[in-house]
Nucleic acid binder design. Structure first.
Lengths: 204, 204
DNA sequence: AGGATTACTGACTAGTAGATAAGTTGTCAA
DNA sequence: TTGACAACTTATCTACTAGTCAGTAATCCT
């Protein structure tokens, strides 16, 4: 009856993806190997190849799951948050949670290694950013309509700048091992959208 | 007298660094090998090890040179540019030139792979960002004093946000193979420092 | 001319990468 | 109970990684 020793089961694929996700977020796609996952799971490399025949397939599957989870998170924000301002704050909190855990956004990491990625993985990464920017642009546009945000030009452009800035802020925050670097940058980023620009010194 | 065939010479070390720099900017530290450089230079791998005993040493030397070149570029800007606004524009142009060439900032790339880097390389990367942010903070502070820039709080915080945003914008621009993504983001970034905030629609 | 130095080559090693084929074990359904 | 299927292991492979070492050719110094 003691089956705890052999951690066999149908959730192996999920556990593999969990480990791969964390490994890529910390070490990058080219910085981890099947051996790393096998060791952490106490199984052989061959067993991983049973679930994911190639590293490219593992990466593609992982990205697909990540994108799905991200879209779900955005949908949750759309349902729960009360307005554009609150939506934007919840959106930034998504990033903050990841960096607080010492990880980098999976896609930010893969974007850096883009040139070396298998094409299917590349495609998923682009889909992630496309969806990300499109959602954000919608929120920004709504916010501008009811006067919560002020910005010039097209919303998609502002969205792109915010996404890029958040990714960059994550990268620097993780490099310095200092979450404040992300928090401060994101706060400034959002402050620039507010209609009444405060000039007062604010607390750190 | 025909010595063009064997490209022997004391500039080999420099050529190795040139190739390594480009390779890292495109493929990352974990995405290139001695074999890549050896092939491009038409020499053996062993010859590379003569100049740089280990990959860590190659990385460290490269970073040291890169930092030196960057500091030189900043010094040139300090000498030539006429005021904070012009300095900032020249500074952004430094990044724009790199991305226009399809490359990523060397340190932005290494920041992504930070967890897997040899410690000496890490140290150099941090020194780069420290110097970068410090210089930018000084320019911002001067600009604020003579009314060319407006921002809340400490200049170093704004500098950090700008550096992170530019790195992020480069990464996304390269991922999409679209320089405009960088240009537009950086233009917006600088616009937010201007005292008279224009509300008019501006041309794309 | 001779010796030292610089800049290499060729041949090699140990370790790791992703990947495969054949065999084993546990579970469940007819 | 049997046999099919899922989830593995064992053993192996090829390609590539950084790195070493002994030797060599050209060049500089005296």
């Amino acid at each position: 009856m003691d089956k705890a020793a052999t951690a066999r089961g149908p959730d192996s694929a999920r556990r593999i993806l969990d480990l791969a996700e964390r490994l890529i977020q910390v070490r990058g796609y080219n910085g981890f190997s099947y051996a790393d996952i096998a060791e952490a799971m106490q199984v052989t490399k061959a067993s991983l190849h049973y679930h994911f025949p190639s590293k490219a397939e593992l990466g593609r599957s992982l990205m697909a799951r990540y994108l799905q989870g991200f879209l779900k998170a955005l949908a949750d924000i759309d349902q729960q948050a009360k307005g554009p301002t609150q939506k934007l704050e919840s959106y930034v909190a998504l990033y903050a949670d990841v960096i607080a855990d010492g990880r980098m956004c999976l896609c930010g990491m893969l974007a850096a290694e883009f040139a070396t990625l298998p094409v299917p993985v590349r495609d998923e990464v682009l889909r992630f950013f496309d969806a990300n920017e499109a959602w954000l642009a919608t929120v920004l546009e709504h916010g501008r309509r009811d006067g919560q945000f002020v910005f010039d030009g097209r919303a998609i452009e502002v969205a792109r700048m915010i996404v890029a800035s958040l990714e960059g802020a994550m990268m620097l925050a993780r490099t310095y091992g200092d979450v404040k670097r992300f928090t401060q940058a994101s706060r400034r980023l959002l402050a620039q959208l507010r209609p009444l620009r405060r000039r007062a010194a604010h607390r750190t």
